[in-house]
Design a protein around this nucleic acid. Structure first.
Length: 741
DNA sequence: ATGCAGCAAGTTTTT
DNA sequence: CTTGCTGCAT
């Protein structure tokens, strides 16, 4: 216990870190020092000579987390951590497949399809097979394929019993074949193929089982089936070289079930790995008491839990401030006012987060922040390697590295435009199909002896028109690739492809140009940092690590993001906006119980982001999809005991502030609890005038709700009511027993 | 080949 | 209200 490594740890943290060689489940609550435990465990194993870096494999979900882990370990240990395998599931699988591409049945420079690439590929095959995209939306096919893969199923393994699924299955098969022909792998493929590789190849499996004595997994609650099985296979449970699997997770923070994460993996882990020790990290070092208690009571409403209760040594702190706004604009201006006050009190803007359930909500907030001249940064949206111009540049590079990559060829064969229209393209595709070759080969054939590859140069690529010019261009670049360093190849691609000049002349091309130059910079730093600085390695890097959302932006700025994006972060103050039924919990989640529980976990995550101060805000009316919606407060607000909350009275001068026009006022007072406002309400009468939009009503069966809309009149009159419990319903006025209030 | 009108849809997201 | 896509017209 003398090691400085272990100083300042609590008993449970210490137990987890110093556990002997065995598999363990660590239930780590929000703010309980999860990352610290994980990294300290690794450092401890190495420092105490229980493990060499070479025998350690650590898996995370995001590149950011992987990087963070490495940085921390390096800070704790003077040892060279080079031999360790630390990365995302996909990154590690990629590494495995690159190392054993032959055994895995892949070409050496196989390319990775990101989600957009995959969708493009699917659309392309659909066109070829004349699949009706009305009956089979490409997205759905993509979903089908990815889910099959994540269940470990090849097309041959999927069992279908209805004609519709049979079509999907046929398509899956065609997709599989096309990927193999082109030598490309989508994200799920990386995992599935590397799973199959280890499963099939005993020598490799034994090699890696013997090598990795310690496997550590972060955010285990987010693993899907395939990832779990991959771990299980690699760990070799019950074999002579079984690894000690150290798994850290929090079932209460599982918010990715919608994309396949399966908390059932935690239970299965207990069983499959014969877990005898479950360590719970329940001391929270982040939040004040009230915030934590609110989170605890809220999450207790979920039935599917492993059970855990966070506590803190800190005092109660402040209550959660709850603000009921008249509308979305009013909500935003309240938030602006409070942020100003906090900032004036010395809280850094970057230490304040403004969270929302869905991205669409950021617009109104941004508008107000902009008008208030408060600097802010929005997370989410387009990432660097996903930008169109970057994708174009990368497509050139991909085609250079892999002539079979039809996706890449199609993206750029006529971009920038070089006079290759739809008909020549169709012809090309016909030829390729006939001789069962890549488009590139078809293109080669097409130019025939028009080109002399030996004398082809970038400049005469331009002199030739159409496909011939394109072929010469790629050939030239391909020869450059053989003797030029990566950044220089990219510069040549940008120049000779015509991308640079294209964006120079384009009206709004300045940003895109800048991004293209940034791509060269990215390559330069990649060459400096990566062990393998080849072009295929760079392309894999670009696919696996989509890059930061945007350049840093050094100034102190408020942080805007979805609740999902906030996971893992913490802030002095947190504003949780749009706490309305229908928004949060979101309408679409209410169909299933599991959906609601996930929404509640999302709320739990949101609450536990705050260290000192937490705000709940909601708007009684909100502009959504072009029309005003009337909402009641989220049930989650009511699930939190009143003693933790402090309702803020709208003390501000409503009529004179200019904050609301009298027009808005109509939208403002809508629920029974603001009855005083009813007088000001410019009623939109429904049918007989007894009811009006925005009015609070009670239904014998559905309970309390608010009238959203109506149609028809007389005995035909129907009203749309948003019920607190039952959701939004259309009711015939004549039959529905509605009472005011 | 490009551009615009018209229309449908509209959670959450990493790799 | 937005965005993104399709299809038609130039």
């Amino acid at each position: 216990m003398t090691s400085p490594l272990l100083a300042g740890l609590n008993a449970q943290q210490l137990e987890a870190i110093t556990l002997p060689h065995q598999s363990v489940l660590v239930l780590a609550g929000a703010g309980s020092g999860k990352t610290r435990v994980l990294t300290t465990r690794i450092a401890y194993l190495i420092q105490s000579n229980q493990a060499s870096p070479y025998s350690i494999l650590a898996v995370t979900f995001t590149n950011k987390a992987a990087k963070e882990m490495l940085t921390r370990i390096n800070a704790m240990l003077p040892v060279n951590t080079r031999g360790m395998w630390v990365g995302t599931f996909h990154g590690l699988c990629n590494r495995l497949l690159r190392a054993h591409y032959q055994e895995a049945g892949l070409p050496q420079s196989f390319q990775i399809l990101d989600t957009a690439d995959q969708l493009a590929m699917i659309k392309r095959i659909m066109k070829r097979l004349s699949v009706d995209d009305k009956r089979f939306p490409p997205r759905q096919i993509q979903w089908f394929i990815n889910h099959a893969k994540e269940a470990g199923q090849r097309a041959a393994d999927v069992i279908v019993d209805d004609p519709f699924s049979r079509h999907l299955l046929e398509f899956y098969l065609a997709y599989e074949q096309q990927c193999n022909r082109e030598g490309v792998a989508d994200f799920a493929e990386l995992l599935l193929r590397s799973y199959e590789l280890l499963n099939r190849n005993e020598i490799l499996r034994d090699h890696y089982r013997e090598r990795f004595d310690h496997i550590l997994v972060d955010e285990f609650q987010d693993t899907n089936r395939l990832q779990y099985n991959w771990l299980k296979l690699l760990a070799g449970v019950g074999t002579a070289h079984a690894a000690a699997v150290f798994v850290v997770g929090d079932d209460d923070q599982s918010i990715y079930a919608f994309r396949g994460a399966d908390t059932g993996n935690m239970k299965d882990f207990e069983r499959d790995f014969a877990i005898s020790t479950i360590i719970k990290l329940e001391q929270n070092y982040r939040s004040h008491g009230n915030i934590l208690s609110a989170a605890n009571t809220l999450i207790e409403n979920n039935e599917q839990r492993l059970g855990k209760n966070l506590w803190t040594a800190e005092g109660e702190g402040e209550p959660i401030r709850v603000y009921r706004a008249f509308n979305d604009t009013d909500e935003a201006s309240y938030i602006v006012d409070e942020i100003r006050a906090l900032h004036a009190d010395g809280v850094m803007l970057s230490d304040i987060a403004l969270l929302y359930r869905s991205n669409a909500q950021s617009r109104v907030l941004e508008h107000s922040l902009f008008n208030a001249s408060l600097p802010y940064r929005v997370y989410g949206g387009m990432r660097f390697f996903e930008r169109m111009e970057i994708k174009h540049a990368l497509a050139y590079l991909r085609l250079v590295a892999n002539p079979e990559d039809d996706n890449a060829l199609l993206r750029i064969i006529n971009f920038p435009a070089r006079g290759i229209g739809a008909r020549s393209l169709e012809h090309l595709q016909d030829v390729a199909r006939q001789q069962n070759s890549s488009l590139w080969e078809a293109a080669l054939l097409q130019c025939g002896d028009e080109i002399n590859l030996d004398t082809a140069t970038a400049s005469n690529a331009k002199s030739k028109k159409g496909i011939t010019g394109f072929v010469i261009l790629i050939q030239t670049l391909r020869r450059d690739w053989e003797h030029m360093p990566l950044p220089q190849i990219i510069e040549r691609v940008l120049l000779h492809s015509g991308l640079l000049s294209h964006y120079t002349t384009e009206r709004e091309g300045a940003d895109r140009l800048e991004n293209l130059h940034e791509l060269v910079n990215a390559a330069i730093s990649f060459v400096h940092e990566a062990e393998d600085d080849s072009l295929p390695a760079f392309l894999a890097h670009a696919s696996l690590e989509a890059g930061e959302h945007q350049a840093g932006g050094g100034q102190d700025a408020l942080q805007l993001m979805t609740v999902h994006a906030a996971k893992g972060l913490e802030f002095h103050s947190v504003f949780l906006s749009g706490l309305e039924e229908g928004l949060f919990p979101h309408d679409n989640s209410l169909n299933e119980i599991k959906g609601l529980e996930e929404e509640r976990r999302l709320m739990y995550v949101a609450i536990t982001r705050a260290r000192r101060r937490l705000y709940f805000t909601f708007a009684q009316s909100r502009m959504l999809h072009g029309q005003t919606r009337y909402n009641i407060a989220s049930r989650f607000v009511e699930e939190i005991p009143k003693s933790f909350l402090k309702w803020i009275k709208p003390s501000r001068d409503i009529s004179g502030s200019g904050r609301m026009s009298s027009y808005d006022m109509g939208a403002a007072f809508s629920t029974a609890s603001v009855a005083s406002g009813e007088k000001l309400f410019k009623r939109t009468p429904v049918a007989d005038g007894q009811w009006h939009i925005g009015q609070a009503v009670t239904h014998a069966k559905f309970g309390e709700g608010v009238i959203l809309n109506y149609e028809g009149s007389g005995s035909e009159a129907r009203v749309q009511v948003n019920f607190a419990r039952a959701g939004t319903k259309w009711l015939m006025l004549e039959y529905a027993k509605l009472t005011p209030g």
